[in-house]
Design a protein around this nucleic acid. Sequence first.
DNA 1: AACTAAGCTAACGTTAACGTCAACTAGGAG
DNA 2: CTCCTAGTTGACGTTAACGTTAGCTTAGTT
Lengths: 129, 129
Amino acid sequence: MAKENFFTISELASMFDISSRTIRYYEEIGMLTSESRESLTMQRSYTNRERRRLKMILRGKKLGFSLQEIREMIDLYESNPEGEAEKSRIIEFADSKLKEIEEQIMQLQMLREDILTYKEKYENTRVKA
Amino acid sequence: MAKENFFTISELASMFDISSRTIRYYEEIGMLTSESRESLTMQRSYTNRERRRLKMILRGKKLGFSLQEIREMIDLYESNPEGEAEKSRIIEFADSKLKEIEEQIMQLQMLREDILTYKEKYENTRVKA
DNA sequence: AACTAAGCTAACGTTAACGTCAACTAGGAG
DNA sequence: CTCCTAGTTGACGTTAACGTTAGCTTAGTT
C-alpha cells in the first residue's frame, strides 16, 4: 500500500530549494545515503526517508548548528543503544543538547525584546525634516 | 563619577574567552572600534561601551547569525534615521528580523520536543544484555 | 543518427572567520 | 643595560560548506 515515492536528486533538491551539489556533498560526508543505486545508470534515487532526513539537516542549519552537530543529533534519533553504558551516554548527550537549546531559546527571546524596544523607540521618534 | 574602566585587548578577550586576534578581526571588518589609540604606544583600549558591543556580537554568533547579519542588527540599534523614508525602512527591517527570530524560536521548540520524545523512547527501552 | 537534458565523478575554486607566524616596539623587572 | 611580557602590523594558512568546471554516460526527443 506504500506509495511508490522515488525522487531524483534534482527533484529532492528543488523541494528544499538547494542544489544537487549540496545533496551530493551531504552524501560525501555521510550525512545522507541514497538508495542502492541503479547499478547500470549509477543514478541516485531517494525516498521519503531521505527526504525527512534532509529536512532535519536543513532545519538544523537554519538554527545555526554545524553539520557535525547536526550529524550527532540525527545519530541520536537513529542510535540503538547496546548496553546500559551507551544508553546513559546517549541520554546524557540528549540532556546537554536540551540545555543548549533552551538556552538558545532564551537568548532569542531576549534578542526579540531588544529589537522590539528599539523598534518602538524609533516609532515614537520625531524625525528631523 | 563614571568609573574609569579601561581594558586592554587581552583583558577584554579573556572576559569572553576569545582570542585577541578575534577582537582585532572584528575591528578590521568594522564591527568594533577601539578608543582613540594612545598615539605613542599604538595600543588599543576599550571601555564598557565596546564590551557591550562585543557581548552583542557574541550573542548573535551563538544564535547562528553571521557577522554580516549581526552588523546589520547592531546598526539598527545605533542608527539615527534621517527622514521618514529611512525611518520606515528601519522599522521594516526590524519587523522582518522579528519574524525571522520568532520562526527560529518555534523551530527550536519543535527540535526540543523531538529530542525529548526520543530521549523518553530510550529511557523506556530495555537494553539487550 | 544527432541533439539535448540530466546525472555522474574528480578536482580545483571560493568565502567567512579566524589561527598562526614573523618582525618590530614600548614598558617595566632585576 | 638586558630580558621578558604584551602589544602592533602585515601576511600567509586553515576549515567548513559548498560552487564551478571539465569530461564522460545514459535516456529521451526530433
